[in-house]
C-alpha cells in the first residue's frame, strides 16, 4: 500500500497585527499532525504566533489557548541565530 500523506499549505501569523502569510507546505496524514508538523518545521525560530494549515479546501487554525506550549519553547534556542557566534571582527563575509 502506498501511503503518501497529503500535502498541506501552511500560513503563519508572524506577530499580532499581521495577517497569516503563506510560508510553504508539508506532508501530514491529517489536520492535527499537519498543524504540529507546521509548528516544528516553520516556526523553529519563533517565526509565528498562529498557524493555519489548509488541505484542498478546509482551513484549520491552532487554537489560542495552546499558544504558550506551541511557541515559547523556541525562544531560548539562541544558537540558531547567527549573532550567537563570536567571530573575530576582521573576519568578513561570514
Amino acid at each position: 500500500m502506498s501511503a503518501e500523506w497529503p500535502l498541506w499549505e501552511v500560513f503563519v501569523r508572524a506577530r499580532r497585527g499581521l495577517s497569516h502569510v503563506h510560508v510553504g507546505s508539508l506532508h501530514a496524514p491529517d489536520a492535527e499532525m499537519a498543524l504540529r508538523n507546521a509548528r516544528d518545521v516553520y516556526t523553529r525560530r519563533n517565526e509565528g504566533v498562529s498557524i493555519w494549515v489548509v488541505p484542498s479546501e478546509r482551513i484549520t487554525a491552532s487554537s489560542p489557548e495552546e499558544k504558550d506550549a506551541f511557541f515559547d519553547p523556541a525562544a531560548d534556542k539562541v544558537y540558531r541565530h547567527p549573532t550567537f557566534y563570536e567571530v573575530p571582527a576582521e573576519v568578513k563575509h561570514l
Partner: peptide, 23 residues
C-alpha cells in the same frame, strides 16, 4: 526563490557555527 530566501537566512548560522568550532 522563496524557499531559497528561507534557507539562506537559516544557513548563515550553519556557516558561523562551523567557523567558530574550527576557531
Amino acid at each position: 526563490a522563496r524557499a531559497m530566501v528561507r534557507i539562506c537566512k537559516e544557513e548563515s548560522f550553519h556557516q558561523r557555527q562551523g567557523f567558530e568550532a574550527l576557531l
